[in-house]
Design a protein around this nucleic acid. Structure first.
Length: 425
RNA sequence: GUGAGCGUAGCUCAAUCGGUAGAGCCCCGGAUUGUGAUUCCGGUGGUCGUGGGUUCGAUUCCCAUCGCUCACCCCA
């Protein structure tokens, strides 16, 4: 007996019972984005490794230890995308979508990071990403956030998520702040947790979102990034806040919110929940005005965000927002031995007459009683019965499984009428 | 990468202070040969995660290993 082949660690099968929720989420997002004038872009899952190194940042954890990188047959280093923005920018630039233009794009699909799996964190996970290009003002930042807020409302999870907001300023402002922050933290180096001490040289801003209480206590006294923002950054941030206020979107300013990818500047935001354990960020993004240029294009302002599909599905499940999604068949066709061909032909006519009809054929034989039970278990509203009696009279029996209503034996045309009424009700 | 908890039937879980395992659900058949509740009867199904050690004997004790889960970390 051969060794059993399993799925790769952290890469999950999405079963039919779960995919209903996935589709509900995807459909809702797609409709919303279409309504806002966003176009879907479909991107490769594999890109040159260099793309991610140059965009995400060489010293980030993602690039340093989480990428699925391999050589293809001619020796080039390729990487399974760990996030979507880099590929989207690459495509936009390569296809001439960005120069002197305004773009609103979205994409969906799997991302890959070599991390230890836990709740809400997987090695293959799925994001729906939204990226916009060519717009400098805070109005587009606000549009993106309002759009997400509306999405939570549409999904019925508004009360489970909170919006955290911050401005990282320009890279010059951040650089000045970084210097002062490091100088200040150096004085308290001993009290910092181990990871934060290491970040003092590699990525000091990430110290801000350390979970270590001692480190946080020290940060309470540390210089604040907000004080380093100059007019333009501050005006941008104030403008965004004013628009969110006007739109009725509630937010919390979190001066410690930094984000893990290097390309962010000015606006950053995160929608977080406490309902999911340690992985509480459900949607996050920000402005990355420098990235396009950094990847070789003309300087182009850009803002975007990505949401984690698994996490949102978990949220939908925890608050039971998916139970009502009804994909059960309208009808279950009970077939008698010897009448299979006739039944199939009739089912075909019903399907043709009723687009959208969900009709399950009973296949594989079995006793009448068993088939009725299967019809019940399928969740079908009615069972259609073609047995010898019905076949003899050229009719079909319709049995109502969910309501107190007598079974009828009627013509095929009448069955179409009944099913139509049922589908519309 | 670090830590903790857990791996027994398809699923959810028992049990054995070491004497080779049991229930519920599911599935199949019957009571009920064309009508889904419930009930009753019967049946299928386990290399007790894997490898090694101790032992007359290991699912049980020990070691290792793999897997899962959660947390650290990281992030969607």
């Amino acid at each position: 007996m051969g060794k059993r082949i399993t799925a790769i660690r952290g890469m999950n099968d999405i079963l039919p019972s779960q995919s209903v929720a996935w589709r509900h989420l995807e459909d809702t997002v797609r409709n919303l984005l279409t309504g806002y004038g966003y176009g879907e872009i479909r991107l490769p899952i594999v890109e040159y490794t260099e793309l991610f190194k140059r965009s995400i940042g060489e010293v980030t954890d993602i690039v340093e230890k989480e990428m699925y990188t391999f050589e293809d047959r001619n020796g080039e280093s390729l990487t399974l995308r760990p996030e979507g923005t880099a590929g989207c920018v690459r495509a936009g630039e390569e296809q001439g979508l960005l120069y002197n233009q305004v773009q609103r794009l979205w994409y969906a699909g799997p991302m890959f990071r070599y991390e230890k799996p836990q709740k809400g964190r997987y090695r293959q996970f799925h994001q729906i990403g939204v990226e916009t290009f060519g717009m400098v003002g805070p109005d587009i930042d606000a549009e993106l956030i309002v759009l997400t807020a509306q999405l939570w409302a549409a999904l019925g999870i508004s009360e489970l998520v909170r919006l955290q907001l911050n401005s990282l300023g320009t890279s010059a402002e951040r650089a000045r702040y970084r210097t002062d922050l490091v100088a200040w933290l150096e004085q308290h180096r001993e009290q910092l947790d181990e990871d934060s001490q290491r970040r003092l040289t590699s990525n000091p801003l990430r110290i801000l979102d350390s979970k270590d209480p001692a480190t946080q206590a020290i940060l309470d006294q540390a210089p604040s990034l907000a004080d380093y923002l100059e007019d333009e950054s501050r005006t941008h941030f104030d403008g965004l806040k004013a628009m969110l206020d006007a739109a009725g979107v509630r937010y919390e300013i979190n001066p410690r919110l930094v984000r893990g990818l290097d390309y962010y500047g000015k606006t950053v935001f995160e929608w977080v929940t406490t309902a999911l354990g340690a992985q509480g960020t459900v949607c996050a993004g920000g402005r990355y005005d420098g990235l396009v240029e950094q990847l070789g294009g003309r300087a182009t302002p850009a803002v975007g965000f990505a949401m984690g599909v698994e996490r949102l599905v978990l949220l939908l499940e925890t608050c039971d927002k998916v139970a009502h999604l009804n994909l059960q068949p309208h009808a279950y066709f009970i077939v008698s031995e010897g009448l299979e061909a006739q039944s199939l032909a009739m089912a075909g006519r019903l399907r043709a007459a009723l687009p959208g009809l969900r009709l399950t054929m009973h296949c594989g034989g079995g006793k009448f009683k068993k088939q009725v039970k299967k019809a019940d278990e399928s969740g079908a509203r009615v069972a259609l019965i073609l047995g010898e009696n019905e076949a003899a009279s050229g009719e079909l029996a319709i049995k109502y499984m969910r309501e107190d209503r007598p079974q009828e034996t009627i013509t095929e045309a009448a069955v179409v009428e009944r099913l139509l009424a049922l589908m519309q009700g």
